[in-house]
Design a protein around this nucleic acid. Sequence first.
DNA 1: CTTTTGGTTCTGCAACTATAGAACCAAAAG
DNA 2: CTTTTGGTTCTATAGTTGCAGAACCAAAAG
Lengths: 154, 154
Amino acid sequence: MRLSQKQKELIEKIGIYFEQGMQPAAARILALLIVSDKDSFSFDEIREILTLSKSATSNGLSFLSSVNKIEYYTKPGDRKRYFKWSPSNTINHFKEGIEKILGLSNLFDEAIKLKKDKDSFNSQQLVDLSDLMSFLHKEMPIIYNKWESQRTQH
Amino acid sequence: MRLSQKQKELIEKIGIYFEQGMQPAAARILALLIVSDKDSFSFDEIREILTLSKSATSNGLSFLSSVNKIEYYTKPGDRKRYFKWSPSNTINHFKEGIEKILGLSNLFDEAIKLKKDKDSFNSQQLVDLSDLMSFLHKEMPIIYNKWESQRTQH
DNA sequence: CTTTTGGTTCTGCAACTATAGAACCAAAAG
DNA sequence: CTTTTGGTTCTATAGTTGCAGAACCAAAAG
């Protein structure tokens, strides 16, 4: 199994996107599973393709499993585990990422409560920002529905 | 200038939200400027309230300035600079955060192009994910408008 | 010119992170 | 029971990060 130059570059680029939130090795493993033509890879394939040590590979895979970004299956009569990207969970994670916005908006609301002068410029802006965030949060399900329906149409 | 216990706690909590993307000291400075009743703080006030060293304060402030999260003004006959949160930019940054999604979606599109079997489960899921992301991206201006109009109503 | 003020830059270090390599281990194969 | 396989866990370490403290500097004050 060899990767094209373009695929290698893409793994690095996508890896960088993922690196905020996980170690470089894990980010690259995930990018590999997403980019590559093959749907699943064994431990040693990943290790060789990305030239990682066994420990880095093992740690990366167990991290990615623990946050449900990948899953693995086994073949009968084969002790190896085959790891694959878990796209449905990725869509959920994407949604959860948006959800996190709400957490910050709640903290902002707390901050507003503590403000003595609720009419100060800062207070007003904070109210606005929190409002935008929770508005957005409320709108998300609508957007997801809209997307679902327009997607199933064609 | 003293902060209440609640305000201190909130600064830490909001700080943690900001820490992905900047150093702890900078994150706390920003949280202070957002949470506090006073709209602006001098270098030494920040330093004292957060018990930071001069260098940490200076680096934090210059980082926050460089990414336009804060601004400062001066008073005539006073050499000090007074730093304040820049909320309008914060709303823009919030929008830019959403924009970043598009970047990943473009990388996903590149990955799809390189896929030999475009009908594989992985490919399909990747198409879906990228599609959701760019759909969301396209919908954002609409949401912002919706928010603007409902906000000016009351 | 000298001193003070407000802040920046430099130096060193403690703590943390990510990885390699080795030791290790359980299950399967022989 | 012994060996092999597929991986995990432990140990050591290079590299990075974030900060303190000191040295430094330019502008203003005296």
